[in-house]
Amino acid sequence: MKIMHCPLNGPRNISEFTYGGQVHTMPDPKTCDDPSWARYVFYEDNDIGIVREWWQHTPSSYWFIAERHNGSDDILRTYDPGELFTDRVDFQTPGGES
């Protein structure tokens, strides 16, 4: 069984984790066109290379980001999502930052 390094809990069996899909940037739901929205909702890039994914350590409910090469299945780096998501997100202004 594969081992994944949880940034909070250290190396653990992969069975302790829940996969959360690729990290996408959401287009502005108020302004983007239907095809862009559909692409965001239904499509994964599915290219061979390094992918950035959401993973949760199930027993501690801790979400983090993993960078994984989907060809070799090597997990290259795991880190707290605070690295990517630094600021509060607001939806108040239509057309604003999502």
Partner: peptide, 20 residues
């Protein structure tokens, strides 16, 4: 639901505690 809530707030950074 709990898992999804935690993930959304990981991105939104709102000021609250979510407890199952």
């Amino acid at each position: 639901v709990y898992r999804d809530m935690l993930r959304w707030n990981t991105q939104w950074r709102l000021e609250l505690d979510i407890a199952n």
